[in-house]
Design a protein around this nucleic acid. Structure first.
Ligand SMILES: Nc1ccn([C@H]2C[C@H](O)[C@@H](COP(=O)(O)OP(=O)(O)OP(=O)(O)O)O2)c(=O)n1
Length: 828
DNA sequence: AGATCATAGAAG
DNA sequence: CATCGCTTCTATGATCT
């Protein structure tokens, strides 16, 4: 699933640092040279280094440390220098930084310090003797024999943590998501669904809608806890209370084992509360790669049993196998099948336990699963409604899907301390209580609950089974980060929004979709909430605010999306420093078709879209003109002048065709404002004005002409710029520069095509992520010089080029500047 | 009255 | 040192047309 593209680093070594490659004619790379580019080339170069060394010295070393990733901390004897060499020569991976605890399998340290934090007991920390002794004996000795307790890992400064702490780091989103369990959970789920839909379509799916099934709801027991405990290998999961989390205090427990649960610990609880209930609780690290690998085997095992017509993916560790009902479907047969399924998973995953709930409806299967857990199964195969109700009655309201904390509370507020399903069933015999319930939890919710009381599936579950392809089809796209978000200025916000837009735009593009509606969602520090919340870098108590914007046409343009987001942020008028979370959503997606080239069309044309698309240009213009008449301001006594201004001019601006701010700022209005406020408005105005312009011009562009341009730049346009750059050796940077020059020359009259801009900015961002700022600088300089050459004319294209340079390229350059310092710190 | 919105809630 | 609080879908009441 982890399909990250890894550029060919062997080649890019020479591209990026030509001097270094040519000067190293002294046999295998010297250590200092090796280090020079360590961050980029490390993995490949370790192998390279070993091969070259062994070839030239005519020796070979046993690969004792194969599969291990080792970090050396602080001063050691032998030196870090020597240890690095020994580790890579013997097949190990050497890590220069502790980037996230999970990546490193072992830490080597010599000096013993008084340990302040027991949490580091979770590391495998060993003395250097482990390396030297293992090599001397020619075999990998057990690390436990060289274990060092009471060592302070952070004796030296480990600066890599800085990325996650500073949301303005160009790598922040990527680096944060790498450790976010919720991101992984959601991402995995999407990928599983996507895979399911693809498989179904390619198998010319004959899912008969009226087929009756037995449902096998299969779920790992405390998934993360089980896997991490096995990887760690220190504790017995059946006797020691274990929980998985990143931290040791106000950190979420994602999963805890059943021993811990017997103390009252549960998933989602903070470690601090859990430790109060269970002081002996052991905290283990996440092992995301392993979760993914085990999950793959799990799904493979379910399919291999061969009794399921479909395996519906619910999540990384949870699926529903659908077995067609036949005349010989009996309790005995189902028992046998449950045992068989559990065995299949156990064998293929080499020892992981799942539990199964088996029943005639999705709901009953889920409840049965609850009964079967842990490490077991339960079958609910009933013939009468009465039996079904009796079975349902033994559960609590919260056990029902769709009844969460809030609904449960509302029911209790309405009927008193009611927890069990049976109690509610009794109450609902009175119609009066039914209407009370509807009032409390809503009509749909109440109706579903009543369906569940009979052990029946609700409409949603039924549609999942009957038409899985459309049920699992994605209908919206979003990204959201509510951790470590701390902005100082509006420029920070703009930069971040550009990165978020880019992130989501890439997903949109990958799925070959267009969006019609963009929503910006903010978490704003709640009134009275502390500036520094209890959780380190957390969001604390917040108000959620969102604002949607319906675009005039379906789009896939990064530029339009990014500027729309900036506009939306200004409409919400939250001070940057109060923002604790930020998210972006695309709604009303339609499929993009390839057929007509760059001019993207929607496959479905609803009557609504049809009408809008056919509105004449005149009408559009008139509407814009009409709406520019200023509205009388509302009496917003406490609003700032800026907010007041935007309230008047943007409040009701839903579609870009109805943006009703003036094209020029009213001088009288401006002159009455303090200077800093004037500046703020001017800055907001230019962004908003730009947003309006790009969206409006989108409709009027001439697609054919633009396509031609992009074809001239085909190698930029195929979306593979980064690898190609690296592959093309020394000449490539020059080649790119020449192409840039041609690009400017060819488009100076009409302006650059948005698609190409996106790709170019995207490429620069990738360079920035790799911290190759000198290349970025060179490219931007070339572009700027060329644009300056054309400064005689006063064309529309020139203006667009300048805008592009200032608003989008210079920011990329600026953000890399801070990285230079980073590199220096690392390269010590 | 029907469309569109902002928001809340649930799930893993 | 801390810590990695996402993403998707549904329902509902308010507001807009
Ligand atoms: N609030 C939560 C709930 C779950 N998870 C993750 C960790 C779990 O291991 C995994 C699966 O969730 P389950 O609800 O299936 O819980 P477990 O598998 O941990 O326990 P069990 O299914 O045995 O109750 O999702 C999480 O990160 N945060």
């Amino acid at each position: 699933m982890n399909k990250e593209k890894v550029p060919d680093r062997t080649v890019s070594l020479e591209t990026a640092e030509p001097d270094m490659a040519s000067s190293s004619s002294i046999g295998y790379l010297g250590y200092a040279e090796y280090f020079h580019n360590k961050e980029l080339q490390q993995l490949e170069s370790d192998v390279q280094y070993r091969e070259k060394y062994q070839k030239e010295k005519g020796v070979s070393h046993p690969t004792l440390f194969q599969g291990l990733t080792i970090y050396v901390n602080g001063r050691t004897d032998p030196t870090r220098f020597e240890l690095h060499k020994l580790i890579i020569l013997h097949g190990g991976t050497f890590k220069h930084y502790l980037s996230g605890k999970t990546a490193v399998t072992h830490i080597i340290a010599s000096e013993l310090n008084a340990s302040k934090k027991s949490s580091f007991a979770n590391y495998k920390i060993v003395g250097p003797g482990w390396i030297t002794e293992s090599i001397a004996r020619g075999k990998l000795l057990p690390w436990q024999d060289f274990r060092i307790v009471n060592v302070s890992v952070l004796q030296g400064k480990i600066t890599d943590f800085a990325t996650i702490r500073n949301c303005m780091d160009p790598n922040f989103i990527h680096s944060y998501f790498k450790s976010s369990r919720l991101h992984h959970l959601s991402n995995w789920k999407f990928q599983l669904r996507d895979q399911f839909v693809q498989d179904l379509l390619s198998s010319r799916g004959e899912i008969s809608p009226n087929q009756k099934y037995v449902f096998f709801h299969v779920d790992f027991d405390c998934f993360f806890a089980q896997v991490s405990a096995k990887i760690d290998g220190t504790y017995d999961i059946h006797t020691v209370p274990i929980a998985i989390s990143h931290g040791i205090n106000n950190s979420d427990i994602s999963s805890c084992n059943y021993v811990a649960r017997s103390f009252g610990v549960h998933n989602g609880m903070w470690v601090s509360s859990a430790l109060k209930l269970c002081p002996a609780l052991k905290i283990l690290d996440y092992e995301f790669d392993e979760y993914e690998a085990i999950s793959n085997l799990f799904y493979q095992a379910l399919k291999s049993v061969g009794i399921f017509k479909m395996v519906l993916p619910l999540s990384i560790d949870e699926a529903i196998g659908c077995m067609p009902v036949t005349s010989d479907t009996t309790q005995e047969l189902l028992t046998q099948k449950c045992i068989q399924v559990r065995a299949a998973v156990f064998d293929l995953t080499q020892g992981y336990s799942v539990s199964i709930g088996c029943a005639s409806s999705v709901l009953l299967a889920r409840l049965a699963l609850r009964k079967g857990k842990p490490n077991g199964f339960s079958i609910s195969w009933f013939s009468t409604p009465l039996e079904r109700r009796a079975f349902v009655d033994q559960f609590k309201l919260k056990d029902l899907p769709g009844i969460g904390y809030s609904t449960d509370q509302k029911i209790q507020e309405t009927f008193g301390e009611i927890h069990s399903i049976s109690a509610l069933r009794g109450l609902l015999e009175s119609p009066n209580n039914v209407s009370k319930l509807i009032k409390a939890i809503g009509s749909k919710n109440a109706k579903r609950l009543q369906t569940y009381l009979d052990g029946q599936d609700d409409d949603e579950s039924i549609s999942m089974v009957k038409d899985p392809a459309s049920y699992f089809q994605k209908k919206s796209l979003s990204v959201e980060i509510n951790y470590a978000i701390r902005f100082k200025t509006i420029d920070d916000v703009d930069t971040f929004l550009e990165r978020l837009s880019l992130y989501l735009w890439e997903k949109l593009k990958d799925s070959n979709l267009l969006t019609r509606q963009i929503t910006l969602k903010l978490m704003k520090r709640a009134q009275g909430a502390p500036v520094d919340p209890p959780k380190f870098m957390g969001m604390g108590k917040c108000d959620a605010i969102s604002k949607a914007s319906t675009l005039g046409s379906n789009t896939q343009k990064y530029g339009s999306i990014a500027s729309e987001c900036k506009t939306l942020f200004r409409i919400l008028s939250v001070p940057p420093a109060e923002v604790r979370g930020i998210g972006l959503q695309f709604h009303r997606l339609t499929a993009a078709t390839q057929a007509s080239g760059q001019k993207l069309e929607q496959r479905r044309i609803t009557t609504d879209i049809f009408k809008k698309a056919n509105r004449s240009d005149d009408e559009v213009v008139r509407r814009v003109d009409e709406d520019t008449t200023p509205r009388t301001p509302k009496s917003t006594t406490y609003a700032s002048p800026v907010k007041n201004y935007w309230d008047r001019h943007l409040k009701r601006s839903v579609t870009p065709f109805r943006y009703d701010f003036p094209d020029e700022l009213d001088p009288e209005f401006m002159s009455n404002l303090p200077k800093d406020v004037q500046e703020e408005i001017t800055s907001h105005h230019s962004v908003a004005k730009r947003a309006k312009r790009t969206l409006r011009t989108e409709l009027f562009e001439e697609p054919k002409k633009q396509i031609k341009q992009t074809q001239d730049l085909h190698y930029i346009h195929d979306g593979r710029l980064v690898p190609q750059l690296s592959f093309q050796g020394l000449s490539s940077a020059k080649q790119i520069c020449r192409t840039l020059i041609d690009w400017v020359d060819a488009t100076i009259d009409v302006g650059p095509h948005e698609k190409d801009l996106e790709l170019f900015v995207n490429h620069l961002n990738k360079l920035a992520d790799q911290r190759r700022s000198h290349i970025i600088l060179q490219l931007i300089k070339t572009l700027k010089n060329k644009i300056d050459d054309h400064y005689d004319g006063n064309s529309e294209g020139l203006e667009q080029w300048e805008y592009f340079l200032i608003r989008r390229l210079i920011p990329v350059l600026n953000k890399t500047k801070s990285d230079v310092n980073f590199n220096l710190v690392f390269d010590l």
